[in-house]
Each structure stands twice: as C-alpha cells, then as structure tokens.
C-alpha cells in the first residue's frame, strides 16, 4: 500500500511541529522516518495511521494512479517502542491474541502463532511467560503479533530504542520479512544507523 503525505502541517498551540511536509512511503517496503527527538516523528506516524488529524494538507493511502483513500486506524498494526505484552501469558498466547481478534478459532490462532514464532527464531520461548523474555525477544514478539493481525500497514515507533545492535538487526530483519509478505512498514527512529538497512528513507527536521 503506497502512502502519500502532501503539504502536511501540525501545530500544538503556538508550537509548530512541522509545516508543508511532503513524503511518500512505497508499497511493500520498509521505510525509515528519521529525525531528531522532538522533530514530530510520532506526530507524523499518528497522521499517517489516521489517529491524528492534520491542520493542513492530507494523507492518502493507495496507488498514485488513483485517488486513494483516507487513513483507517483499524488497518494499522503498531509495534510500540516499549513492547506491550501480557507479561503473565506465554509468548505464543500473546501472538495468538491477534488471530483471535481476527475471528480465528483459538486452536487456529495458536497454530498460526507457533508458526510465526518459529519463523522469527522464537520457538524456544514460545511457552515462556512474555514477561521473562529478553528485550529483543519481546520486540520481535511484537513484530510477530503485528504480522498476525493481517493488517496491510505496520508502523513501528522507535523500534530499536531499547535494543542492542544485534537485536536491532534481528528486528529490522523481521521488518524486511514483513515487507516481503506485502506489508508496508514504516519505522520511525532518531538513530541514523537504521538508514543503511531499509529500502526507503524520509527525513523530518
């Protein structure tokens, strides 16, 4: 799903967050939204996902050749900066929740969750309570959960903020696999190191 942002402006009171910003996030690719802290990355992600209204400008989802559609928050899967998981439930149950919320029977949701965890090298922690998983594992579980939602757009806010280099690589590799399955991924980061491993970069200053 191609996403186009045109003439986007947002202010909070008298403070202008950004003005007249144009961006394009290509379909089925991992895009990085790079900018220093306070540059408005989270605000831009909110606008792209449809959770936040722009003061001016617009965000369109869809191919450039057609008129596209308004953003729909219900079609966005989030990978948050702090991995929000049910700590006392197993890792596989956390991922299976997304299947349940799609209306899958519990057994089918669990089967899908096991497969996803295996794909992302997390089989050994599948039955471990999520609260006991490492930071990197938790972040990848969040990626699995995002994939299990079956939503066409995944937005990650500072996905590497709490991770070391090795785990950052694993998470970015997971994003690449998501994109390979047709999902559009946008990862906001203040870490320029991420630029080298994504296929598209947009900057906010």
């Amino acid at each position: 799903m191609l996403i186009e942002v045109r003439g986007a402006s947002v202010s909070f009171g008298s403070r202008e967050v950004f003005a007249e910003v144009d961006m394009t996030f290509p379909d089925a690719e991992v895009s990085a939204l790079i900018g220093p802290s306070g540059s408005g990355k989270s605000t831009m992600l909110g606008a792209v996902s449809g959770q936040l209204k722009l003061d001016r400008g617009h965000v369109r989802w869809g191919a450039a050749s057609d008129a596209g559609s308004e953003p729909d928050p219900d079609l966005v899967a989030w990978v948050p900066q702090s991995a929000s998981l049910l700590g006392h439930r197993s890792c596989v149950e956390n991922v299976a929740l997304a299947g349940l919320c799609r209306g899958l029977p519990r057994s089918a949701a669990m089967e899908m969750a096991h497969e996803l965890l295996a794909d992302f090298g997390l089989s050994k922690v599948a039955l471990t309570p999520a609260g006991r998983a490492s930071g990197g594992e938790r972040q990848r579980i969040c990626v699995c959960r995002a994939l299990a939602t079956g939503r066409p757009l995944v937005i990650a806010d500072e996905p590497s903020a709490n991770l070391d280099a090795a785990n950052t690589d694993l998470v970015l590799a997971a994003f690449a696999r998501l994109a390979g399955s047709g999902v559009t991924v946008i990862a906001a980061s203040h870490d320029p190191a991420i630029v080298g491993v994504v296929s598209h970069v947009e900057y906010l200053r």
Binding site: D74, S84, L85, G87, A98, C101, R102, A146
Partner: peptide
C-alpha cells in the same frame, strides 16, 4: 495499561 494496550495492538476493537 500494557494489558489493555496488548489487546488493542492485537486488533481488538474498543467494544471487544
């Protein structure tokens, strides 16, 4: 709050 967030991030609607 992470519990509620987990469900919403998993795709649960507000009503769910």
């Amino acid at each position: 709050p992470a519990d509620a967030a987990s469900y919403r991030l998993s795709g649960a609607s507000r009503m769910a």
